[in-house]
Amino acid sequence: TTYKLIANGKTLKGETTTEAVDAETAERVFKEYAKKNGVDGEWTYDDATKTFTVTE
Rank of each mutant, 00 (worst) to 15 (best):
F52I: 01
F30Q: 00
D22V: 02
K31Y: 05
D40Y: 14
E56G: 06
D46I: 04
E19T: 14
G41A: 03
E42P: 04
G14W: 15
A7M: 15
T11Q: 10
K13W: 13
F30G: 00
W43V: 02
T17Q: 09
K35M: 12
Y3D: 02
Y45Q: 00
K36H: 10
A26F: 01
E56N: 06
L12M: 13
T16Q: 09
K10E: 09
K31H: 08
A23P: 11
T1H: 14
R28D: 04
T18N: 03
T1R: 10
L12P: 04
D46L: 03
K31D: 02
N37D: 03
V54P: 01
T11G: 11
F30Y: 02
G9H: 08
D40F: 14
D47T: 08
T1A: 12
E27V: 05
R28I: 10
T17M: 10
V21C: 13
T51N: 02
I6W: 05
Y3V: 02
A48H: 10
T25G: 08
K4Q: 05
T55S: 08
V39K: 02
G14S: 13
K35L: 12
T17K: 08
D22M: 03
A7L: 15
R28N: 07
V21H: 12
A48R: 11
V39W: 15
D46E: 06
E24G: 09
A20T: 05
V21S: 11
K13M: 12
Y45C: 00
T44Y: 09
V39D: 02
Y45E: 00
T17W: 14
V39C: 10
T53S: 06
L5P: 02
T16N: 05
Y33M: 07
T1M: 11
E19V: 15
A34I: 07
F52V: 01
T18E: 04
A48I: 10
E42M: 13
G38D: 06
E19Q: 14
T44H: 12
K36A: 14
K31N: 04
T17H: 10
K4Y: 15
T51M: 04
L5W: 04
T16L: 15
D22Q: 03
V54W: 03
E27G: 08
N8Q: 11
T25M: 12
K50I: 01
R28W: 07
A7N: 05
E27F: 15
F52D: 00
A20F: 05
T2K: 12
Y45G: 00
L12S: 07
A48F: 11
E19F: 15
A23W: 15
T17S: 11
G14M: 15
D47K: 09
F52P: 00
F52Y: 05
A34L: 10
G9Q: 05
K4H: 14
D46W: 03
A23Y: 14
L5I: 03
V54Q: 01
V29C: 09
G41H: 02
E56T: 07
E15K: 07
G9L: 14
N37L: 15
G41M: 03
E24T: 11
N8P: 05
T2Y: 10
K36C: 11
L5K: 01
A7F: 15
F30D: 00
N8F: 14
F52S: 00
D22K: 03
K31L: 06
A34F: 05
L12T: 07
Y45V: 01
T1Q: 12
K36E: 12
T18S: 04
D40W: 14
K35R: 13
G38C: 08
T53Q: 06
K35G: 06
A26V: 02
V21M: 13
A20P: 02
T44F: 11
G41N: 01
T18Q: 05
Y3T: 02
E27K: 11
V29M: 10
V21T: 12
T25E: 14
E42A: 10
A7R: 04
E27C: 14
G38S: 06
T2W: 13
T44Q: 09
V39I: 15
I6S: 04
G41V: 02
R28P: 01
A7I: 15
A34G: 03
A7E: 04
A48Y: 10
K13I: 11
G41F: 03
V39M: 12
D47L: 06
A23R: 14
E24F: 10
T53P: 00
V39G: 03
K50S: 04
F30S: 00
A48D: 11
E56D: 09
E15F: 12
V29T: 11
E42L: 12
T25S: 13
R28E: 07
V29G: 03
E56C: 07
T55L: 07
T2E: 08
T55Q: 09
T11P: 05
D40V: 14
N8S: 10
R28F: 08
K50C: 05
Y3C: 02
A34W: 08
E56S: 08
T53C: 07
E24W: 10
K4L: 08
Y45K: 01
K4I: 13
K31P: 00
G14R: 13
E42G: 05
A23K: 15
L5N: 01
K36D: 09
A7Y: 15
E32L: 09
E15W: 14
G9K: 04
T1K: 12
E15H: 10
T49G: 04
L5A: 02
G14I: 15
A7T: 15
T53G: 03
A34M: 10
T1P: 09
D46A: 04
T25C: 07
K13C: 15
K10D: 08
E27T: 04
A23H: 11
Y33R: 03
L5D: 02
T18W: 08
T49K: 06
L12G: 09
D47E: 14
Y45H: 01
A48E: 13
T25I: 07
V29A: 08
G9W: 06
F52K: 00
Y3H: 03
T2S: 07
A34H: 02
D47H: 09
A34R: 01
K31R: 15
K10A: 12
T44E: 10
A7C: 15
Y45I: 01
E15S: 09
E15R: 07
T16D: 04
V29Y: 15
E24C: 13
V21F: 13
T55K: 07
L12A: 06
W43G: 00
K13R: 12
Y33L: 09
A7V: 15
E32C: 09
K35T: 10
V39Y: 09
D22G: 04
K36N: 12
V39N: 03
A48C: 08
D46K: 03
V54Y: 03
G41E: 01
T11I: 12
G41T: 02
K50P: 00
T53D: 02
E15L: 13
T44M: 09
K36Y: 08
F30M: 03
T2N: 06
E27D: 04
T2M: 13
K50W: 04
N37E: 06
L5R: 00
D22E: 04
T18M: 12
D47R: 07
G38A: 06
E56P: 07
G41R: 01
R28A: 12
T11W: 13
T51S: 05
V21E: 12
L5H: 01
E19P: 04
I6R: 06
K13V: 12
K31I: 06
W43D: 00
T17A: 07
D22C: 05
T44N: 08
T53Y: 14
A26W: 01
A23S: 09
E32F: 05
R28L: 10
K35C: 11
E42H: 12
I6N: 05
E15P: 06
T11E: 09
W43M: 04
K13E: 08
I6K: 07
T2C: 13
T25Q: 13
V54D: 01
T2V: 14
K50A: 04
I6L: 07
K10Q: 11
T53N: 04
E15N: 07
T11R: 10
N37Y: 14
Y33D: 02
R28K: 13
A7Q: 08
T16P: 04
Y33H: 04
D40C: 12
Y33I: 09
E56M: 08
D46N: 10
G9V: 12
D40R: 11
D47G: 08
E42D: 11
W43F: 04
